[in-house]
Computed example of a mutant assay.
Amino acid sequence: MCKAQHEAQHLSNPHEIIDMTSDKGGSLELLHCPSHKEKRLQFYCNREACLEEVCPDCVIEKHNGHKVEKLGEVYNQIRAKLQKESNEIDTELLPKYEKLLRKEDAKISRVSKRIDEVQKQMEAHANKIVGKVTAIKEKRVQDLQKEKEKALKSIEATKNTLEKNIEQLRGIKTQLDQKIDARPCTAFLNAGKNKRLTEMEEFPKDIEYTLDNFRAGDIETIVQENHFGTSPQITQTIQPENLKNVKEIIP
């Protein structure tokens, strides 16, 4: 069937009808029309409402006046378009995406390293706080030991005084016992009360030593979470790179 025959029979409006050829040859020769089983699909209707492969009978019956092209040429055009998009994937898109993927891998390493650094900063700060609390504790312990030394020193002084008084009392008693057992004499009659004995009749003050309990400070007040330091936040910033917009690859 040819253009002259169509025009002679006036079965269709004038349009270009061309034989099917393609650089893949016989691969299109096997395509037959589903409506006309014995006819091969030789053309392609480019009308927006159609966009389908047609045989010569279809052109006459349903596609009068439509923009009909040779199927081989349409095939080659589509194949060239697909090849162009395939090349774009190989030369532009894949390299870019692979580069971005490598950058993401590097980011994983970089973020993990940074997290470790900040964690060490927090641990160092916590150790300083522990060190400060330990230093305060040591100061309190030293103050407590000073209180102990002061109390023990006072107790030891009272003890020494008592031991000294006991020794003197025993000496005075010995003297008194000797006088009692001695022969009466004028010295005995004139003997007055021992002055030291009079002093010892006033006993040292009995001092009791007590120690207050440790009044612990409120831990929540001493170390409040919001006073420990800030909680670092990861900020996401889109880099100002001129990335090519991703577009549909398959039409």
Rank of each mutant, 00 (worst) to 15 (best):
D206Y: 10
K179H: 09
L30E: 10
H36T: 06
G171P: 02
L211K: 09
H63V: 09
D57R: 11
R170F: 05
K247E: 12
K247R: 11
T134G: 05
K84T: 08
M122F: 12
G25I: 10
Q9Y: 10
N194A: 02
L28E: 00
D90K: 08
D105E: 14
L94A: 13
G26E: 15
I172W: 08
A49N: 11
E123K: 09
Q168N: 13
M200I: 00
R47D: 13
Y75A: 06
P14E: 07
Q236E: 04
Q233T: 12
F214I: 03
Q121M: 12
Y209S: 07
A191S: 07
A216T: 08
T174F: 08
E61F: 12
M200E: 10
S112E: 12
C33G: 10
R140Y: 06
I250H: 08
E167R: 11
H32D: 06
C45Q: 11
V118C: 06
L162F: 01
K70N: 07
I155Q: 06
L152F: 07
S109Y: 11
G72N: 05
V130L: 10
I238T: 04
N87S: 11
N87K: 12
H227D: 09
I238V: 09
I17A: 06
S154V: 11
K132L: 11
K39D: 02
E208K: 08
D90S: 10
T221P: 09
D181L: 05
G192A: 01
A126W: 06
R114V: 08
C33A: 00
L94R: 14
C50E: 01
P56T: 03
C33D: 04
T158P: 08
E147T: 09
E29L: 13
N160K: 14
K148N: 14
R170Y: 04
K195E: 05
